[in-house]
Structures are given as C-alpha cells and as structure tokens.
Computed example of a mutant assay.
Amino acid sequence: MSSEMAPDEEYEFYADPANQEPAGRPRGREARLTSPIPVRFPTDGLAEAKRRADADDRSVSSWIRRAAEHELGRSA
C-alpha cells in the first residue's frame, strides 16, 4: 500500500496473515562485531548516554558505537 493508513486500518490490514509476509530480501548485520571491551562511565555520563539512546530508540551499546564511529571519522 502506498497511502497512509489510520491505526485502526493498519490493524485490520496486518490482521490478515496474507499481509504479514516480509517484502524484499532479508537484511543481515552489516559487519561482525569484535569481542566486547569493558568501558566505565561516571554515573551522570552513563545516565546521559542512556537518555540519549532511548531518545534515538537504540540500545546503549549501539548508541555508544555510533558515537565512537562518528569520532573516528573526524579529522584530528
């Protein structure tokens, strides 16, 4: 469907099992991650990271990885 649906229309549409089939090819992770490394934050820093991760609808780990990748891409 290409038009916007109201929430109740969406519910009715996806209630039909025929409309629950995935479209397109499955997407996997882009790259494998290395082994975990311990990183410690001050309490207020961790609270802020959690708040920002929630605001971006990401896990804290994913948010921190993205922040690190952003910093690694900057020129010194």
Rank of each mutant, 00 (worst) to 15 (best):
W63A: 08
A49R: 12
A18D: 13
P42N: 02
E9F: 08
R32V: 00
P38E: 00
E21T: 12
P26I: 00
A23I: 14
M5W: 10
V39H: 07
L46F: 15
D8F: 08
F13M: 12
V39P: 03
V39W: 07
A15T: 05
T34Y: 05
P7V: 07
A47T: 13
S2F: 09
A49M: 14
E12W: 05
T34S: 14
F13H: 14
L72W: 01
A31R: 15
D16A: 06
E69P: 00
D54W: 01
P26E: 04
D56M: 11
W63G: 01
E12G: 05
D44L: 11
I37T: 13
G73R: 10
R32L: 07
R32I: 01
A49G: 01
A53S: 12
W63Y: 15
E12K: 15
F13Q: 05
V60K: 05
A47E: 09
R29M: 02
E30S: 07
R74K: 15
P36E: 01
G45Y: 05
E69C: 08
K50N: 08
A23E: 11
L46W: 13
G24K: 06
D54S: 13
P42S: 12
Q20G: 03
D56K: 13
R58Y: 01
R51V: 03
G45M: 10
R51K: 15
R66M: 13
H70E: 10
A6Y: 10
P22T: 02
V60H: 04
K50T: 12
K50L: 09
I37P: 01
S75L: 03
A67S: 13
S59W: 05
G73T: 00
V39L: 14
S61H: 06
S3K: 15
T43G: 06
N19W: 08
R74D: 00
R40H: 07
R52Q: 15
R74V: 00
H70S: 12
Q20C: 13
A6G: 06
